[in-house]
């Protein structure tokens, strides 16, 4: 059933005034319109424009988060600027990613890449998480610069490279200097890369990783973690063998 955009004026007025504890049923027509927009490009464009406008307004955090949730379903390149503007906002960065991570538009990925170099601390981890979820190989050089030392960011950067699990990511991981939790994340990521290599038929490359990690952990590790890594290497070597 076609939805008249004018019928959404009142629900969007309710959204502008919405806050936690408010009557969410007043927003139900927007929910329904988002679903109906699948078959109505005009409605979709109108909704996207209105939802993006909420992000730049004086609406509450709750209202902006609601808008991000809806944009995550129907958003396109058109709403990327409004969301990108929130990536550095400690309160709304996550919900901006909640939407952008789901966008197929390359502009969304570009916005996350750009933000990776412009935010700090946990927000950087957020960008890493979303870029990895989007399997953005182009971000590997930028991610590579973060895998150093023993910070949570370094660990997350290693994690991201493991999720990307490409030969390029494997090269980066083989050359990094880390310690502590970041070093453990590097091991996990290298194992992920090796598994991807086995699947891709690059068994010799995979074996090289498994052998290096196996050597590092030793023949008789004394911790659960060490034994698990050794187990992963043994399994990997088995999988990477011919015949």
């Amino acid at each position: 059933m076609a939805i008249d955009p004018a019928s959404l004026d009142a629900p969007f007025a309710a959204l502008a005034a919405f806050d936690w504890g408010g009557d969410a049923t007043t927003l139900a027509p927007i929910d329904a319109a988002v679903v109906a927009a699948h078959a109505d490009a005009g409605l979709r464009a109108d909704l996207e424009k209105r939802l993006a406008a909420v992000l730049g307004s004086q609406a509450s955090r709750a209202a902006k988060q609601y808008a991000c949730r809806k944009l995550s379903l129907i958003g396109s390149a058109g709403s990327v600027p409004a969301l990108a503007a929130l990536l550095g906002d400690k309160e709304l960065s996550h919900m901006a990613r909640f939407a952008l991570e789901r966008y197929a538009a390359p502009e969304a990925t570009e916005a996350l890449r750009k933000a990776l170099g412009g935010v700090e601390g946990d927000l950087t981890i957020g960008m890493l998480s979303s870029l990895a979820a989007k399997r953005d190989a182009a971000s590997i050089p930028a991610i590579a610069t973060l895998v150093t030392g023993d910070s949570a960011v370094a660990a997350a950067a290693a994690e991201a490279l493991g999720l990307l699990a490409s030969p390029e990511a494997a090269v980066v991981l083989a050359g990094v200097t880390t310690s502590g939790a970041a070093a453990e994340a590097v091991v996990d990521a290298r194992l992920a890369c090796a598994e991807a290599m086995v699947k891709a038929g690059r068994k010799a490359d995979a074996r090289a990783i498994y052998e290096a990690l196996s050597k590092a952990v030793g023949d008789a590790p004394t911790t659960h973690r060490g034994r698990a890594v050794r187990m992963a290497c043994q399994r990997g070597l088995f999988a990477a063998m011919e015949g």
Partner: peptide, 19 residues
């Protein structure tokens, strides 16, 4: 970015490995 250099491991088989 360069891909990792190929390193040829001993040609052990799975059977030999389990043995």
């Amino acid at each position: 970015m360069a891909t990792p250099a190929k390193r040829v491991a001993p040609a052990a088989t799975r059977r030999e490995f389990l043995k």
